[in-house]
Write a protein that binds this DNA or RNA. Structure first.
Lengths: 158, 158
DNA sequence: GTAAGATCTCAAGCGCACTTGAAGTCAAGG
DNA sequence: CCTTGACTTCAAGTGCGCTTGAGATCTTAC
């Protein structure tokens, strides 16, 4: 037993799981990948410091957004886990992370725009649509592998 | 090489791959899943209508955004592939799709906000941060599904 | 006609992100 | 002390989204 609000209060893996919604097996997996860390009891059981809640949450949210765990590792790899991270530790990491998120968001925004401006108006299905005429755009840019966005953007160019 | 502006021009799987950046094997896989469709030559080879370029691109972009292919199927399942889809077909589908994208984008925006307002200032490591009074900020944004933030907020209780 | 290269199907394999199961250990209550 | 439930490791299995390989066929250019 210990006082519930001590600074050094540690959580079991079960408690961490309950509080973050992440399965214990997933927490072990994240630890194997070096994304989170724990201390061990004399009996070899994991105990988590409070600040690990955040790291777990970040990993969990990233995963739900479809961002590979390796990217999370890259972004937060410099943030120490053995001690409470400093302000600067978090700032550096958060700047990297924000760039990742921004790219994702922009990609989604482009898609939304595409839907509104083109699919939404029926362009995708109507050969006659003036916005479409991709032949001009394609011929102008020449052959070669086109990126996904390029293909979607083709429609706007014409 | 050939007249590029025929209405009935069909692409081989290789050409579709080059133009969308999607591997032929992936195109076959998408077809197995019913996400895209092709017609066959007398010799059983796939040929794609131009409008499939769009479908392929949508699938491909969605995948890159981490959106499950099943969701893409759900969103665009009603859009016919054997014939040119009608305006209404696309509109219905694009409304569903936009909702999916919007949810994703909002989730990312919330995370970005979290990073800017909290991690960026060091809150994630400092319990005392004033910005982290979640009740004000989050109550203001209204109800709705906020699982992601709920998790991030938990630390702030103590 | 023939050769080269593109495409076909089917089966198996891969990487990621886990989950499940087996067999054993730890922690807390009575 | 003893039980119960949470925890441990390790190996194998799962689902997704493909890729790879084998072996055959199609298409095209000469």
């Amino acid at each position: 037993m210990n006082a519930a609000h001590e600074p050094e209060e540690l959580m079991t893996i079960g408690e961490m799981g309950r509080r973050t919604g992440v399965a214990a097996s997933a927490l072990r997996y994240y630890e194997d990948l070096g994304l989170i860390a724990s201390v061990r009891t004399a009996g070899n059981q994991r105990r988590y410091a409070r600040h690990m809640l955040r790291r777990v949450s970040l990993v969990s949210v990233a995963k739900r957004l479809g961002i590979p765990l390796a990217d999370v590792g890259d972004a937060f790899g410099d943030v120490p886990m053995d001690r409470t991270p400093s302000h600067d530790d978090w700032q550096r990491a958060s700047r990297r992370w924000r760039r990742t998120l921004e790219e994702r968001r922009r990609a989604i925004e482009r898609l939304e725009h595409e839907l509104t401006g083109c699919i939404g108006c029926g362009c995708l299905s109507l050969k006659a649509c003036a916005l479409l005429n991709p032949d001009d755009a394609l011929a102008a840019t020449g052959a070669g592998p086109r990126r996904l966005e390029d293909v979607l953007e083709e429609d706007d160019e014409g």
